[in-house]
């Protein structure tokens, strides 16, 4: 089953981060990615530009609405995600708890709603 970890945090917690701290943070995430890869559960990840750079698109009202900014203005914003392929929610939660982002924000874990759990290779 494919699970997506949505990493939410408050960007203002990182406004004073030094160059060295940023480097260390990249290394910590790098190790986490390596751990996921070694365990054979890694699918994908990305680190997103800040929410203020978001552009939102909707056709819900019948015509194309383009809005400058995120879908909702909140203190904690989506900063990145991981996609892992593990057997069940317990395994997904075990890995989510190891995610460095869990130390400073919230990691929301969601199962894929796609047929075959989002995994094209699933039997």
């Amino acid at each position: 089953m494919r699970y997506t970890f949505l990493l939410y945090s408050d960007p203002s917690d990182f406004k004073d981060v030094t160059e060295e701290e940023m480097q260390q943070q990249l290394e910590v995430f790098g190790r986490y990615i390596a751990d996921l890869q070694t365990a054979g559960v890694f699918v994908d990840t990305d680190w997103l530009q800040p929410a203020m750079t978001a552009t939102s698109v909707s056709l819900k009202t019948g015509s194309k609405q383009i809005q400058d900014g995120p879908f909702a203005e909140t203190k904690e914003t989506l900063g990145g995600y991981f996609v892992v392929d593990v057997p069940d929610l317990d395994a997904a939660l075990a890995w989510a708890a190891k995610c460095p982002a869990a130390h400073y924000g919230t990691v929301e874990v969601r199962a894929s709603a796609m047929p075959e759990g989002g995994n094209p290779h699933a039997s």
């Binding site: 917690d13 990182f14 004073d16 981060v17 030094t18 060295e20 701290e21 940023m22 260390q24 943070q25 290394e27 910590v28 190790r31 986490y32 190891k98 460095p100 130390h103 400073y104």
Partner: peptide, 12 residues
């Protein structure tokens, strides 16, 4: 911070 696998900025 490395021992805890967390960003140093958070720990600091």
């Amino acid at each position: 911070a490395n021992l805890y696998c967390m960003p140093a900025a958070t720990l600091s």
